[in-house]
Amino acid sequence: MLLIHCPYCEADLPELEFRHAGEAHVARPSNLADITDEQFEAFFFIRENRKGVVFERWRHLHGCGRFFNAARHSVSDKFIRTYKAGEPKPQLSEREIAAATPIGRGTPANEPIRLTGEGDGQ
């Protein structure tokens, strides 16, 4: 079970209090009726689903009830940081990312680990 820091309650709390709410920073178009099918698909269905650092929404459902965002590593499941809704996507330092990156998990099923969208991770 994950331990999640709610940026509003300012406390580390068990995952059971929270609901995952999907990829963060997906902007809902304000002109939904006018956009093309391709644009709607990209907004509504297409997801990054990255192996590495992901930005995602959480809701502190059984607590303050508020939505917030988190940066997490999707292989180690370690949170890099959580931040309030509406704040811009944070620039993460190499050190922060390295601290969340799993080490010594060299089984074929787990390698390689992609840190960013660039390159092939080798």
């Binding site: 994950l2 995952h20 689903n49 499941d77």
Partner: peptide, 13 residues
């Protein structure tokens, strides 16, 4: 689990 992951492990709960 409720969150996306490539960890090949999940929560005990």
């Amino acid at each position: 689990d409720q969150y996306t992951s490539y960890s090949q492990t999940g929560g005990l709960h």
